[in-house]
Computed example of a mutant assay.
Amino acid sequence: MPSATAPLDFQEPVVVQLTDEERTTGELSLEHIGIAVSAMHRDGLVVLENAVDVAHMDAINTILVKDAEEMAKMESTHFNGNSVDGRPTGNMSQGPPLDPDLLFEDIWANVPASAVLSAVLGPKPHVNYVNGNTALGGFGDARQRVHADLFFNHAQFPFAVVANYYLVDVSPANGSTELWLGSHRDTSFRDHRNCPGAQAAKPTELKDGEAIKGELEFGIRDERLDARRQVAPPMQPTIRKGSVVLRDLRLWHAGLANPSADPRIMLAFVHTPWWYACPARVVLPASAEAAVQKWASREKHPVQYDAHFVPATLDHRKVKFDPNFSSANKGYLSMLPQNLGSGYVDDVSNY
């Protein structure tokens, strides 16, 4: 039996407990780097605990919790429905505040996370996407389809990793994300419901290069989920505030209902290799440019933001976030399976 689909003897995320010195200096021990990199390749996910000053998380959470109720009523807010039966899930996109005083380096360019990312993706990874995911309370047992955050033909090696920051302690009690550990190792675009080369096209699916007409067909095909469940069923983790969760973008997962009354907010920063040439840009105010340049030029584990700076104060509640994680590297694209179509890529020309 291939190792990628063999029954697994692990069902919990690997947690690397960082020391205070590792958190403040960014100098992880070789043992911790070894554990984290191995977990990323085996499981598709690792938790770096004690990686962030919790006071920084509290400051951002206070602002976003206050915003959440208002954003839930705004027409410009994007809700991540994608449920099997079409019911609302209470899962909405909610990005972080963009005031330069709130661009905390241990969230926007976390050094311990960057050390692991550099080992997995190569030196000086690029950030092409910054957003957040909020699970509002009061939506019963609604849930998203199991999916990976990919709309297009992609590689079968690590090409994008998201750094997630839960702003509070999370567990099934407040809607932690369902994870299918190890699913990234044996998956391709063929497993996606919206892959035109994998099955006959339906009216709600795309033809090659066309946009999906809705989100109901976005997700992993049922037969692949059934097969995976036999060797590695999904789980919902418990993760402490102050952690960074690194997740391979190919990993199957799903947003579940938040049974608590308070919104559960998680920030998301997608990193790609320096050579990948992702066309997406992070929209930031010009006042943030100095901080971005500092992160890119720092000596230890620099992080490069592919940013579009605008000379105005930005309302983080209304900024358009572009989930285009595709590549413009023609050499890389030529190495992908050519019988699956290119898939759906968001238009990035409307900033």
Results as ranks from 00 to 15, higher is better:
241 K>C: 01
199 Q>G: 09
230 Q>M: 15
237 P>N: 01
247 R>H: 10
218 F>K: 09
247 R>I: 15
251 L>S: 13
203 P>V: 01
234 P>G: 02
224 R>G: 06
184 H>R: 09
202 K>W: 08
206 L>Y: 04
218 F>S: 04
200 A>M: 10
252 W>A: 13
186 D>W: 08
231 V>L: 04
212 I>C: 12
223 E>Y: 14
245 V>W: 08
202 K>C: 06
228 R>I: 11
231 V>A: 10
257 A>N: 09
259 P>C: 04
266 M>T: 14
209 G>W: 02
185 R>Y: 01
199 Q>P: 03
184 H>Y: 08
237 P>L: 03
212 I>D: 10
236 Q>P: 00
196 P>M: 02
217 E>A: 08
252 W>Y: 11
240 R>L: 07
259 P>D: 04
270 V>D: 12
197 G>M: 00
193 R>D: 05
209 G>M: 01
258 N>Y: 04
262 D>M: 09
274 W>T: 15
232 A>M: 07
232 A>H: 14
221 R>S: 08
213 K>P: 00
271 H>L: 08
227 A>K: 12
256 L>R: 15
244 V>Y: 02
262 D>N: 12
270 V>C: 12
235 M>V: 02
260 S>A: 15
252 W>I: 12
268 A>L: 14
227 A>Y: 05
260 S>G: 15
261 A>E: 13
199 Q>H: 11
237 P>D: 03
254 A>Y: 00
197 G>V: 02
213 K>G: 14
271 H>N: 14
258 N>W: 04
209 G>H: 03
184 H>I: 04
263 P>N: 05
248 D>G: 12
198 A>H: 04
213 K>F: 00
258 N>S: 02
260 S>E: 00
230 Q>I: 07
269 F>M: 15
199 Q>V: 07
225 L>E: 01
197 G>W: 03
197 G>K: 03
238 T>V: 09
219 G>A: 07
211 A>V: 08
264 R>A: 04
198 A>N: 06
241 K>G: 00
243 S>W: 07
240 R>W: 01
205 E>H: 15
214 G>H: 12
256 L>I: 15
191 D>S: 11
255 G>S: 09
199 Q>E: 11
195 C>D: 09
203 P>L: 07
201 A>T: 13
219 G>M: 06
230 Q>W: 01
254 A>S: 10
223 E>S: 14
232 A>D: 08
267 L>W: 06
217 E>V: 11
235 M>P: 00
268 A>G: 15
238 T>W: 02
238 T>Y: 02
256 L>P: 00
199 Q>K: 12
270 V>I: 13
251 L>C: 14
239 I>R: 03
210 E>W: 05
215 E>I: 09
219 G>Y: 07
262 D>L: 14
243 S>M: 05
227 A>H: 06
242 G>C: 05
200 A>T: 11
191 D>L: 10
219 G>D: 12
246 L>C: 06
205 E>M: 15
267 L>N: 09
237 P>C: 04
258 N>D: 05
255 G>K: 07
204 T>C: 13
192 H>D: 11
259 P>G: 04
249 L>Y: 06
212 I>T: 11
232 A>C: 06
221 R>M: 13
202 K>G: 06
211 A>I: 07
229 R>P: 01
252 W>R: 08
199 Q>T: 06
221 R>V: 13
262 D>H: 09
249 L>K: 14
228 R>T: 12
188 S>L: 06
269 F>W: 10
235 M>L: 12
244 V>R: 01
204 T>P: 02
197 G>F: 03
187 T>L: 11
245 V>N: 01
264 R>W: 02
